[in-house]
Every structure is written in C-alpha cells, then in structure tokens.
Design a protein around this nucleic acid. Structure first.
Lengths: 122, 122
DNA sequence: GTGTTCTTCAACCATGTGGTTGAATATGCA
DNA sequence: TGCATATTCAACCACATGGTTGAAGAACAC
C-alpha cells in the first residue's frame, strides 16, 4: 500500500495550498456536489471555479460523474491520506520530542530577545 | 478548529508543494543544516536554494540562527503539525474506506505474501 | 589591510497561476 | 423545434514562482 507517491505530492500539496479549494473539499466532505454548487460560495466566475475543480481532479482528490448536463463531484480521500501519511513521518517532532525541542527553541528566542544582534546604526 | 485559521495553511501547503523543499525538510529532520548544506543535494544555484529556504522560513517551518557567517537552520514542527491536523479532519474518509477494503487488502496481502515490496518515502 | 568563504540581494527571464469575458458544447424542457 | 441550464473552452491579463547571473555584505584567515 505504500507506493511511490512522491510525484503526486507536488500536485496534492499544491491543490491544498489554496483556501478556495480547501473550502471545496470541506463541502465535498458533507456530500457530493455539482460544479455549480461547489462554485456557489465564492465570488468568482464559474469558469474560475471549474479550473479549481480541475486542479483537485488532476490531483486525484475528487472524482466526477457526468449526470445529464450536471457534473457531480465527490471526494476521493486517497491523496489526502497520502499527504497525511507523508506528514506523519515528522510526527515525532511534535509529539515525542515536543517538550525538549520546544523548550530549546523558546530558550533560543529568549536569548535572542535579550541580546539583539546586528542593530542598525541609524 | 473551524478552518478559518487558514491564511497560515496557504503558505504551509504551498511550501510543501515543492519536492526541493520537502527534501530540505527531510534533511532538517536528521539534524540542523546550514544554507550551503541544504543546497548541496540540488543542481541549482545558492541563490535559488536561499529562496526555497526563505519560503520554508516564512511558512514558519524552519528557524534560522546566524552563527558567524553561516546560517544554521532547524526544523520547527508546528506548521507541519497544523497541516497534519487539518488533514486529520478527513481521516474518516480513508479509515471508513479501510473498513470496506479491509477484506480485499487482506486477500491481497495473502496473495503477495512472498513478493518483495520495495518502497520509499521520498 | 587583502583575500576567501557563506549568504543574500537585485535585476532579469520564462513559465505557471488565478482571475476575467465571451463563445461553444451538451443536456433538459415546453 | 426553440430556449434555458450546466459546464467547459479559448483568449487574454496581472501577478507569483522558480530559475539564472553578477554584485554586495559580513565574518573568518592571513
């Protein structure tokens, strides 16, 4: 089940890097939606929404079924699971070592705050 | 928890949407690295690597400490945890599917029991 | 001081992205 | 048939992105 999905991570993370598309995913998590329904919350043209949907579709995150003249989209969780799995590689950094690392980082910040370096001469 | 701590997610997911930056994060997961060390695996200029590092830094994913003339970078897991947490909202979509596919996967595993499963997590 | 190393900055370039508008396509309905 | 609905396509625009090169700063070494 662990495949070489790295090439897809580019498109998956890129698709997630836009609030409009994340909102679309949120809506699709409730139920399947047509293109028009997905576009409705936004003050953008249908053509723009269509492009967003295509980005999600190319990333494999939604699947489209053409029913008559409407295109019904539903969530495909696979890429979300891949992204989640990739991030899980770093989970130890905010779980096991959270206390130690966080304490070090905060000490560092405290030191830098007390001892500012490279002040401007002007 | 209600999605609209989202401006941060834009930059975090965007930063993750590039294999060069993901590789840098992977290296930083091993140990702290200077800018030159982070740039070394890539066939790009130092200036280009510096831009990538700045993207990660602006997303809050790395912290920089200037030691003499070298800039030492460390991983900050906070934004990774945020992204992971956001994706976890959708976890039921692939765990539910796991219930449905569980039997199939077990059968698959049984059939492939002797086959090698080379894989990589980038 | 001079020179070398580490890194950023500035200017530039090609391509990508997200948006628009208007036309095209395809379906549903009277 | 004719018309409205749902969606995409094509062309275009402004701006962001990722890359380059060359110069500029700092910090170390001599």
């Amino acid at each position: 089940m662990v495949e070489e999905h790295a090439p897809h991570l580019d498109t998956v993370f890129h698709a997630l890097g836009d609030a409009t598309r994340r909102r679309m995913l949120r809506d699709l998590a409730q139920a399947e939606r047509t293109v028009g329904q997905l576009a409705e919350p936004f003050a953008i043209s249908l053509a723009a929404a269509s492009k967003h949907i295509k980005v999600l579709e190319n990333a494999g995150m939604i699947r489209r079924e053409v029913r008559g003249r409407t295109h019904v989209c539903r969530l495909d969780p696979g890429p979300l699971a891949s992204a989640h799995e990739w991030l899980s590689m770093y989970e130890r950094f905010w779980t096991d070592r959270l206390d130690a690392l966080d304490r070090l980082l905060r000490e560092e910040d405290a030191r830098n705050a007390e001892k500012p370096q490279g002040d401007s001469h002007e």
